[in-house]
Simulated scan of single mutants.
Amino acid sequence: MEFRRLPRNRSGQRPSIDADDLEPGDLALKGEFDLTDLVVDGGDQIGVSGDGRIRRVHATSTRMSEAILGPVEVDDTIFVDVDLSNASWRRTQARRIEFLRCRAVGWQLELAQAQDVYFEDSRLDYAVIRIEKVKGHLVLSGCTLREAVIAGDLSNVVFADCDLTGAEFQATKAGGCDLRGSELAGTRGLLTMRGATLDTGQASAAAAAIVTDAGLVLGD
């Protein structure tokens, strides 16, 4: 069992993958699928539809844009430089997953459960992310989520040094959510983020966003 050091003195369990057990293969997502112990380099899964399970997979440079998946279970898997733009993942169970340098513009991601899920240096602008439950942590580090919609239970979600310009929050819970170090200019829905942590440098942007949300007008 391997752990990743996360921002804010946290740690999370990394995917449990033994490279010696992986076989070269394709990330074939059409129809019903059960993909296990694979190393995938490249491949085109643009616009496919399917449901099933992905376990112990290391996928690099796979094109999954516009794919419609769900319900889907993903366990102990690493995605590197994968294109998820305008894809839709429904009723997703995600456990010990890493998304590294992925492109996910316009991704519609419905997380029924997220357990130790980590995004790094990924682009999720205009994404719609809905979270029912987080176990452990869901961390986004150095990601862009400009104009994204982020909804649901945001407890224990960490946004570390992310660009949230113009993002909209629709939180049902936010206790333990950490926004420190992230850009909040033009964000909406901060009134739903009760219990989230900000740093002092974010106070001005947060105040302006809350005033707008409350329908107040500033005048001389």
Rank of each mutant, 00 (worst) to 15 (best):
G70T: 07
G70M: 06
G70L: 07
P71S: 01
P71H: 01
P71I: 00
V72G: 02
V72Q: 01
E73I: 10
D75T: 08
D76S: 05
D76G: 01
T77L: 11
I78W: 02
V80I: 10
D81N: 12
D81G: 05
V82A: 14
V82Y: 03
V82W: 04
L84F: 15
L84E: 06
A87C: 06
A87G: 10
S88E: 14
S88T: 13
S88K: 14
R90P: 05
R90C: 05
R91V: 05
R91D: 06
T92D: 11
T92W: 00
T92Q: 04
Q93L: 14
A94S: 13
A94L: 10
R95Y: 12
R95C: 13
R96F: 14
R96G: 05
R96D: 15
R96Y: 13
I97W: 04
I97T: 11
I97N: 03
I97Q: 04
E98C: 06
E98H: 07
E98A: 10
E98K: 04
F99T: 04
L100C: 07
L100R: 10
L100N: 13
R101M: 12
R101C: 09
R101P: 05
R101N: 12
R101G: 06
R101W: 14
C102G: 05
R103Q: 11
A104E: 03
A104S: 09
A104I: 00
A104C: 02
A104M: 12
V105S: 10
V105T: 13
G106C: 06
W107S: 03
Q108R: 08
Q108Y: 10
Q108C: 07
Q108H: 11
L109R: 05
L111Y: 02
L111D: 12
L111A: 14
Q113W: 03
A114R: 00
A114T: 01
A114K: 00
Q115I: 04
Q115R: 15
Q115H: 11
Q115E: 11
